[in-house]
């Protein structure tokens, strides 16, 4: 790591703080990558002034090692800004350009230096800002990955709605292709819901599932067996003809598993087990159907 001390004349830059900040913000707004649709002027000004003042604070330390302790505030500021920009929908290059566009405005006060000192300071700041841009880009990447992971998790949860049909009766209507991982998540949440709600009957409805493979079929059977160990009964409804064929061809047997053609049939069986049944309140219109 570099151990050179900073040669940037911080007091000089600090004296022109307002000018630098203003021209940086103006530069950003002029740029082709400006996104007034995503960020307000006041937020932009706040983020810019945060970065600039933290940058000067870092330079004050004399250290140029952006991964070192002297630059911790800077890294934290960039992390916060990057992550907020991930959420706001900025692209990676727009986010990095935010930092890079500071170069010209911050070089401006250095005009007062004599040429040799000026070249040295510009070179140093140039390198430093590039490194900070790199930090920003890495944080942006991490932030984006976290967002994707969270969305995947949310989708998984969304796709596993355990619903209470009746006091003591749960249903899990499954829709779409089941892979081994999703099935496992779904089954765990069903079993947990059984405990949480004290339901003694659960119906897994697979009407919306086009096909199952051996692994998924095995998970289904294991779930039924696990529910039984916990003291609940599990039924499977809505098995399509193709799936029934698959199950038989795969040589999987479903011993002791109650299967019903439709969710409604399974629900009636469930009610019956709980000693309840559905009666028509108006026999005439019920008969007419």
């Amino acid at each position: 790591m570099t151990s050179t001390r900073s040669v940037t004349p911080v007091p000089l830059v600090r004296a022109k703080y307002e000018t630098v900040l203003e021209s940086w913000i103006a530069e950003q707004k002029r740029s082709a990558t400006a996104r007034p649709d995503l960020i307000s002027d006041s937020d932009l000004a706040r983020q810019s002034s945060e970065v600039l003042s933290t940058l000067l604070e870092g330079l004050d330390s004399g250290s140029l090692d952006v991964s070192g302790p002297a630059w911790e505030h800077m890294r934290a500021a960039l992390r916060g800004i990057s992550l907020s920009r991930v959420r706001l929908g900025f692209s990676p290059s727009e986010t990095v350009l935010f930092i890079l566009s500071l170069k010209e405005p911050i070089f401006d006060p250095l005009q007062e230096l004599d040429p040799s000192n000026r070249a040295e300071a510009i070179l140093e700041l140039n390198k430093l800002i590039d490194r900070l841009a790199l930090v920003t880009s890495e944080v942006y990447q991490q932030g984006r990955e976290e967002v994707i992971l969270r969305q995947q998790q949310e989708m998984l949860e969304l796709s596993t709605p355990v619903v209470k049909l009746w006091q003591g009766i749960l249903a899990l209507p499954l829709i779409g292709t089941l892979d081994s991982e999703r099935t496992q998540v779904v089954m765990e949440s069903l079993l947990q819901a059984i405990v949480d709600t004290g339901s003694t009957i659960a119906i897994i409805d697979i009407t919306g599932v086009p096909t199952v493979d051996t692994k998924v079929a095995q998970h289904l059977i294991q779930t039924v067996a696990a529910a039984r160990l916990m003291g609940a009964d599990c039924m499977i409804s809505g098995i399509r003809p193709q799936i029934a064929q698959t199950i038989i061809h795969l040589g999987i047997t479903l011993p002791d598993v109650v299967t019903k053609a439709t969710l409604a049939d399974a629900f009636l069986v469930a009610l019956d087990r709980l000693g309840q049944h559905v009666v028509a309140t108006d026999p005439v219109s019920a008969a007419g159907r």
Partner: peptide, 23 residues
């Protein structure tokens, strides 16, 4: 029996058939 315990037991190959269970 807790859900995680039940799943593990089934995977282990024990289904305790013939044993009555309750929530």
């Amino acid at each position: 029996m807790q859900p995680a315990v039940a799943i593990t037991l089934v995977e282990l190959g024990l289904t305790l058939s013939g044993v009555r269970t309750a929530l």
